[in-house]
Design a protein around this nucleic acid. Sequence first.
DNA 1: CTACTATTGATAATAGAATATCATTATCAA
DNA 2: TTGATAATGATATTCTATTATCAATAGTAG
Lengths: 127, 127
Amino acid sequence: MATQSSRKTKQRDALVSVFERAERPLSVGELLAAASKRIGGLGVATVYRAVGALLEEGWIEAVEIPGEPTRYERSDKGHHHHFQCEKCDRVFDIAGCLENLRKLVPPKFRIKDHSVMLYGLCATCSR
Amino acid sequence: MATQSSRKTKQRDALVSVFERAERPLSVGELLAAASKRIGGLGVATVYRAVGALLEEGWIEAVEIPGEPTRYERSDKGHHHHFQCEKCDRVFDIAGCLENLRKLVPPKFRIKDHSVMLYGLCATCSR
DNA sequence: CTACTATTGATAATAGAATATCATTATCAA
DNA sequence: TTGATAATGATATTCTATTATCAATAGTAG
């Protein structure tokens, strides 16, 4: 009898499913709202726990924005950046990246990571 | 007798002076430490108040980084971005910007602002 | 100099996200 | 089916940056 450490539950299934359908990074609040449609009475703590587990697995990644609750999205999307709508607050993925980062920093600086955030109005809110 | 609304104090002078000498964005903690060298017993609340006032004046601007205390820097530096050292946590200015932002977003999205953050090791910490 | 009051500093209070607690429920190996 | 225990949900707690409070101090107009 090996130490069992993970059970299959409907709340986790629902959350995984939400991530699979998601076309943009979601906050815990958004996750809760989306998964609640399927699982009545779902609690925030459960969402946080599932997110924590999925993060550890590496199946999702955090998208952090200053002054905003962290969003999460599947980590198989490849390198990309984000756009946040000032009006609806939703965060969207934007394809592509910028190349000439290296030449921006002083010589001896070693770049290990970078993030690009765009702010403005999304397609829906700009009309 | 007009309503007087601002008095000249040594703590504010000291903070303004710190900003003038600063070559990188400073957090409230860093501001406190720096200004305390000149003003003994300086309190954090005073730093927060001065920062708030200078922000309103538009003389300084906030540099926000996820999970980090806000840094502040003089707003006359022109458009630029930042680099944070993973080791010493200091934030540095980096000259220049990236041009091709527009072409990253979907057609109907309206970009109003953007931020680029680089992470890595600064010149001092990378040796 | 003096009176008025903005400012200060110490600290309590707030706010928001994330974590811990714990009794109850539900999964699953045997 | 059943017993062991992982998972859940409600809620209390923590954490940390920032704001509010208030008595004491110090600019400054007259």
